[in-house]
């Protein structure tokens, strides 16, 4: 496919949705390098970022040339959730983003791994990685929710702030053979259990809005995403045709 296609065919739409989620979240996690609150988290966040980048590379290669797709598409051609492009914020925001996303990705890949569709081989491997990502996010949610007053306040604020981006995960995606409603029910149940154990509760407020509902999957992103891409793509685009 051409790198700047705005509306990809159905099969590619699903590939790009999964690939771009992994690619962009990996990039955000990579921004933590050298800034993590404790050395063990430098290792853990990099680990998760590397897993996601590995997934993204396999997926992008299913749709074309990985570098062409990552570095030469315009913002409107990216299909990732708005959730994963949100800036890191404080550690609580990063953990809330990880919690929402890794629960979703783990449930999704578990289902894809059990099927016989085109994503089954990748999902079978990725599900082991996402189980770790999920555990990491859950363990930190417990510590922040049930740690100090400050950590609890920050974790609650982060969960609230990102809540509105979670509805998009359960919009149907062309070519992705899952039941979004069932996926959402499992996600909500799992999230509810973790938050309860952490002494937190499900945020209130809408999870979809006229703007946020399915927007990233349709190529509509939030302002920080343009700057993310500018940084990510600048060097590659400065040397057209070069090999690295």
């Amino acid at each position: 496919m051409s790198a700047d296609t705005a509306t990809p065919p159905a099969a590619t739409a699903a590939v790009l949705a999964l690939a771009d989620d992994a690619l962009i979240l990996s990039h955000r996690l990579g921004e933590w390098a050298g800034h993590a609150p404790v050395l063990e988290e430098e290792v853990a966040l990099a680990n998760i970022a590397l897993d996601l980048l590995g997934q993204a590379r396999v997926l992008l290669s299913m749709a074309g040339d990985e570098d062409e797709l990552a570095f030469l598409r315009e913002e409107r051609a990216f299909r990732n959730l708005q959730l994963v492009e949100q800036p890191n914020g404080d550690f609580a925001h990063t953990i809330a983003r990880q919690l929402y996303f890794s629960l979703y990705q783990h449930e999704l890949y578990t289902e894809l791994a059990a099927g016989d569709g085109p994503f089954a081989p990748l999902a079978a491997k990725a599900v082991k990685e996402t189980a770790y990502h999920r555990d990491h996010a859950e363990q930190w949610t417990l510590r922040l929710g049930d740690g100090t007053e400050e950590s609890r306040r920050r974790m609650r604020a982060a969960l609230d702030a990102l809540w509105k981006y979670t509805g998009e995960m359960f919009r149907p995606v062309d070519g992705l053979d899952v039941d979004p409603a069932a996926l959402e029910a499992r996600w909500l149940a799992a999230l509810g259990r973790v938050l309860e154990q952490a002494g937190l509760s499900l945020p209130e407020g809408p999870r979809t809005g006229a703007w946020a509902a399915g927007a990233g999957r349709e190529g509509l992103h939030t302002e920080p995403f343009g700057r993310l891409l500018a940084e990510m793509q600048h060097l590659h685009r400065s040397h057209p045709g070069a090999s690295w």
Partner: peptide, 29 residues
């Protein structure tokens, strides 16, 4: 080196660089 993670010019190079910076954190540990 982390200064270049977000600007690595190919995904392969990005993965290598992230792994390297991660190794350094591990060495510190």
């Amino acid at each position: 080196e982390a200064n270049w993670i977000t600007r690595a010019p190919s995904l392969r190079r990005k993965a290598i660089l992230m792994a390297k910076v991660q190794d350094e954190a591990g060495h510190g540990l």
